[in-house]
């Protein structure tokens, strides 16, 4: 389906000294700087998978997506998608993929979305009946029926993003790349988009590759995660495994009715972090001891509130991004 081996992309830029002298110097000589945006990247993806491609800004996610879609040409390595080499930009290949970018718009700004859709229909040679059916169906799901004939520049970001999604899915692509599809959207719009993508995947079993900085997207959509750091693959596996790569510990916090006068012996083994007013504590408890410790704590103390981490991947991501050296230790 998707198979990348040793995929590498280098960008060459030039260094320039500041000031007028620098400008004059650059007339004659510019020092080239080579950067590996993606380096020896291997990846295998099967039909119907939903993959989250994660990494900090500038890690190479977008570069990877653009190589997958044939927009930019890899410097070296092998890449096969749907039996095609994307850089060849074969017509059959382009007919079967889609790319949605949260930061860029493929809709024409000064015309209504429907006009753009009609042009896309011609591009992809979509039969009239199928086209009508898909537009009606998707417009209903996204609740945008009344916006189809309004100039795109007058739509809100959330509305526009829904239109972008529709535009990209009109031709029923087999592989869909979503580059930060929910960026800048409010919480409700984010949730709508996620729900729509899930529905779409359930119905079509298309292969989806998603990048996002919102862990809620990842949690809701992806069964498998691929982590990219500094152009290199740092993790590839199920979401469940990712949640526990820094250990099986659960983060649990307790709030007490009264301040604790002294450190509790019960918490000592679980690296407790007390709040300043000592009315609360955060613990790291191994999964197998979670039940025992919690029930004992509930008995012993007057507990007003207790929480376990709702989104462990967010914590894992944050930890990894601030301490990338942890990844080496875990040798994923």
């Amino acid at each position: 389906m998707i198979s990348a081996k040793n995929l590498t992309k280098q960008f060459i830029s030039s260094k320039k000294k500041p000031g007028l002298l620098g400008a004059l110097e650059s007339l004659f000589y510019r020092e080239p700087v080579i950067k590996n945006a993606v380096e020896s990247f291997d990846l295998e993806i099967n039909q119907g998978e939903m993959i989250g491609l994660l990494g900090p800004n500038g890690a190479g996610k977008t570069t990877l997506m653009k190589m997958f879609t044939g927009i930019i040409v890899p410097s070296s390595g092998e890449l096969k998608i749907l039996g095609h080499e994307p850089a060849q930009r074969h017509k059959e290949f382009r007919k079967n993929i889609a790319l949605v970018m949260g930061q860029k718009s493929q809709l024409w700004w000064d015309i209504p979305a429907m006009d753009s859709f009609l042009l896309l229909k011609r591009y992809y040679e979509i039969p009239e009946l199928e086209f009508k059916q898909r537009v009606t169906e998707m417009a209903a799901l996204l609740n945008v029926e009344s916006l189809m004939n309004i100039h795109v520049r007058r739509l809100s970001l959330g509305e526009r993003m829904k239109m972008e999604l529709m535009a990209s899915l009109l031709h029923s692509p087999k592989v869909i790349f979503l580059d930060e599809p929910t960026i800048g959207l409010d919480l409700v719009a984010q949730e709508n988009i996620r729900q729509f993508i899930l529905d779409y995947h359930r119905k079509t079993h298309a292969t989806l590759i998603i990048t996002s900085h919102y862990m809620a997207d990842v949690q809701a959509l992806c069964q498998r995660l691929v982590l990219i750091f500094d152009g290199k693959k740092a993790f590839d596996g199920p979401l469940k495994t990712f949640e526990t790569i820094l250990g099986n510990d659960k983060i649990v916090s307790f709030q007490f009715a009264d301040s604790l006068t002294e450190d509790a012996a019960l918490f000592a083994d679980f690296s407790p972090v007390y709040q300043e007013d000592r009315k609360g504590v955060e613990l790291k408890i191994p999964l197998e001891k979670l039940r025992a410790v919690t029930s004992e704590a509930l008995e012993k103390f007057d507990i007003t509130e207790f929480n376990t981490d709702k989104m462990p991947i967010e914590k894992v991501m944050k930890t990894l991004m601030t301490n990338p050296q942890l990844l080496k230790r875990h040798s994923l």
Binding site: R89, R94, I97, L99, K104, S105, Y123, Y124
Partner: peptide, 18 residues
């Protein structure tokens, strides 16, 4: 400059034409 050419390149039509 803006990178919007990306979308033109994705379409299943010769890019010189489009």
């Amino acid at each position: 400059k803006t990178g919007e050419l990306d979308f033109t390149l994705l379409k299943p039509v010769n890019s010189i034409f489009s």
